[in-house]
Amino acid sequence: MASALINVPAKAKRGEIIEIKTLMSHIMETGYRRTATGELIPRNIITSFSCRYNGAEIFRADLFPAIAANPFITFFTVATESGKFDFDWIGDNGFAESASALITVE
């Protein structure tokens, strides 16, 4: 069960700087922890996050085990035109999730 929370303003003025907040459910297992019996728990993290605005990449991040569980990332962009934001999270063990949000620019 992977769910994401995205916060993008539904409406913005052309040229306005808007903040985008994203929260993705993920354990972010570091690969440095051990079980009660001493076995190393294999790493299982999100390694990459990106955001496209009407198809063009506007933000990307490489994540490491030091990013807290349920990665929370916020950044900014200039509202240029109405359309769609696409978010992609990629990680270990074939993890791949996406989400999107719409914006109206006036």
Partner: peptide, 15 residues
């Protein structure tokens, strides 16, 4: 980031 970011700022949570 890039020129379209509007602001050179990011936030996250770390361990």
């Amino acid at each position: 980031l890039g020129p379209r970011a509007g602001r050179g700022q990011i936030s996250t949570r770390i361990r």
